[in-house]
């Protein structure tokens, strides 16, 4: 399977979106809304849940499944409010010593006028800066599209895992092809060049784990529940200074 086929799979109709993972992994998810500054961004869902009895903060990008729902969620492209809501919930997680689990699935941060007016770049920058110093464990899962800075804003984590058919890239193959060759049709070539598949991520040490997808969602989520709970327990046992230094070194190596 070529890299662009993976891109199509990652974007595919019928592919499980953020909330399906949240609802299948956690039993008691309680959604919390708003960034306390401007609005509530439906492209990012955040809230509380328990994982094997452990309280956790959950943040998930959500593209929506039906057309109406997709429009309401802006096709999973967050505005600055989404990132600010995420940061608010992460700061709360830190205060109450809860680990954070993020689900990443976006073609990218939204490129609209309002997003620029309200500081899209600043919102992402602040998340990266704060997540580097968040004194509680963070695990991020790339479940579909990992579109550039808009994805990274929820993926500065102690562990980053990726689904077998998810992708992670600095630019979309379409964007790359049109900039590089002024030809949007060269997407396949661009996708190969960008090294954006789960396999590439493992090879480049951008992720620790690739989750196989040759099973149904429920089985995948059941396995993830066990793995998340084991990994979060181990990370929670680390002294905060060690946790932060390891997180720094995790990204320092690139």
């Amino acid at each position: 399977m070529g890299a662009y086929d993976k891109v199509l799979l990652a974007r595919g109709k019928g592919r499980a979106t953020g909330l399906s993972y949240v609802n299948n992994i956690f039993e008691d998810f309680l959604e919390l809304h708003g960034d306390r500054r401007f609005a509530d961004d439906p492209a990012i869902v955040g809230g509380l849940a328990t994982l094997s009895g452990m309280p956790v903060t959950v943040i998930a990008m959500e593209k929506g499944s039906e057309t109406k729902e997709k429009v309401r969620r802006n096709f999973g492209s967050p505005n600055p409010e989404g990132y600010r809501k995420s940061l608010r919930l992460m700061k709360q997680a830190e205060k109450f010593h809860r680990p954070v689990v993020c689900f990443v699935d976006t073609s990218g941060a939204f490129c609209g006028m309002g997003a620029e007016e309200r500081g899209q770049g600043q919102a992402i920058a602040e998340n990266l800066f704060e997540m580097m110093d968040l004194k509680t464990p963070i695990i991020s899962l790339l479940i579909g599209e990992g579109g550039s800075g808009g994805a990274l804003a929820l993926a500065v984590a102690d562990r980053v895992w990726i689904l077998e058919n998810a992708v992670y890239s600095v630019i979309s193959p379409e964007g790359c092809a049109s900039i590089l060759w002024k030809d949007a049709k060269k997407v396949k070539e661009a996708a190969e060049c960008l090294a954006l598949t789960a396999e590439d991520m493992k090879r480049l040490e951008v992720v620790e784990r690739v989750i196989p997808e040759d099973r149904d969602l429920e089985t995948i989520c059941q396995e993830l529940r066990t793995q998340l709970s084991e990994e979060l327990s181990a990370l929670s046992a680390l002294p905060p200074e060690t946790l932060l230094e390891n997180r720094y070194q995790r990204f320092r190596k690139f």
Partner: peptide, 9 residues
């Protein structure tokens, strides 16, 4: 590729 994105982090 992705390693340039990692520079942001």
């Amino acid at each position: 590729g992705i390693l340039s994105l990692m520079q942001m982090a």
